[in-house]
């Protein structure tokens, strides 16, 4: 039964595929780790360079076209001086980079980014753990609930964000209609400096839960039943079972979920841009919307400076990816 479940999920969602990879490495019973790594080299029948290129060609072309080329262009733009119209006026050296670093609101933007990423990822993981436990239980209408939870994931982020603008609106928002009924409202969710960040975080968590929960569902499905049986025989309490068996065996899935969410949430543009739309200045922007506003909305209106901010953003993501790779190596060693 558990196997059946996880295969259903795996067929239905790419997230589960990732999670499958994660728990595959974490489950001691599988020994495929070494073989996977040694592919090609270990087998001894190494393909010729020509046929290797034939197989790799499309992927390499794709990487060159959609990764390497834009990256080069980004760096070039960041070293150029642009007119407000977008016309390239000449070389700028490192001026754009120093302008970004000297920007008076950069510290605010960085703090916002950290608060945003940490809060959304942490809350998402905690809530998703509960949701995943719930979803692996057998109950009537579980299929329906599983589908319902996918919906926020399937909907476009811009649409979700606009919907929340309507929920949060000071005069018409459904949230405030409800609060007023209880004599608590209205609250200026999007205009007040105190409420805007929590309001955005709530939406961020809302859209991140489906993916995360399904990573955990797959992770839970792959934990062997016999471990639980053994625990029950030994008289472990439900909490002990969860703390000492479920959580450690779920660790690979947790790592994957955490790191992928950090990248998604860090890069999240539509939620912040849409919900923060009415607020002037940069005081509630993250590095991603900061970069966009530098290019098109702010008084700087400077594509070069924005590109420099973009380079900083890429570097930040690279650090996160490197941390991830380190974790995966750690898993291989412990597998």
């Amino acid at each position: 039964m558990p196997d059946q479940q996880s295969s259903v999920v795996a067929a239905g969602s790419p997230a589960a595929t990732t999670a499958g990879g994660a728990d595959g490495a974490g489950t001691p019973s599988r020994g495929s780790g070494v073989r996977t790594r040694g592919r090609g080299g270990a087998r001894g029948d190494r393909a010729s360079l020509g046929s290797a290129l034939l197989w790799l060609g499309p992927a390499l072309l794709l990487i060159a076209g959609v990764v390497v080329y834009p990256a080069i262009e980004l760096v070039r733009a960041s070293m150029s001086k642009f007119s407000i119209t977008g016309l390239r006026l000449g070389d700028a050296g490192w001026t754009n980079y120093t302008n970004v670093l000297d920007h008076p609101l950069l510290p605010t933007v960085l703090v916002n980014t950290i608060v945003w990423v940490v809060a959304v990822v942490a809350l998402t993981i905690v809530i998703s753990l509960g949701v995943a436990q719930f979803l692996t239980k057998d109950f009537r209408g579980r299929k329906l609930v599983r589908w319902a939870i996918i919906v926020p994931w399937a909907a476009s982020l811009v649409i979700t964000a606009k919907t929340f603008v309507m929920i949060y609106d000071f005069y018409y928002g459904t949230a405030n209609l409800l609060l007023s009924k209880f004599g608590l409202g209205p609250v200026d969710f999007l205009g007040s400096d105190t409420w805007i960040m929590p309001s955005m975080i709530l939406v961020g968590v809302f859209v991140s839960i489906p993916f995360t929960a399904y990573v955990f569902v797959a992770g839970l499905g792959a934990i062997p039943r016999d471990v639980y049986e053994a625990a029950r025989v030994d008289g472990a309490s439900p909490f002990q079972v969860w703390w000492r068996i479920t959580l450690p065996l779920l660790r690979p899935a947790l790592l994957v979920a955490a790191v992928l969410n950090i990248i998604y949430v860090f890069n999240s543009f539509p939620i912040i841009y849409t919900l923060n739309d009415r607020n002037p200045g940069f005081s509630h922007d993250t590095t991603i919307t900061f970069m966009y506003k530098l290019a098109f909305k702010s008084a700087e209106k400077d594509v070069g400076m924005s590109a420099a901010a973009g380079v900083f953003n890429v570097l930040l993501i690279l650090v996160v990816v490197m941390v991830y790779l380190r974790f995966t190596r750690w898993r291989e060693e412990t597998a």
Binding site: P70, E73, L74, R76, A77, G86, M291, A295, A307, G310
Partner: peptide, 11 residues
Amino acid sequence: LALAACSGGSG
């Protein structure tokens, strides 16, 4: 890539 797209190509 999204970052690159936002910043547009270079002149």
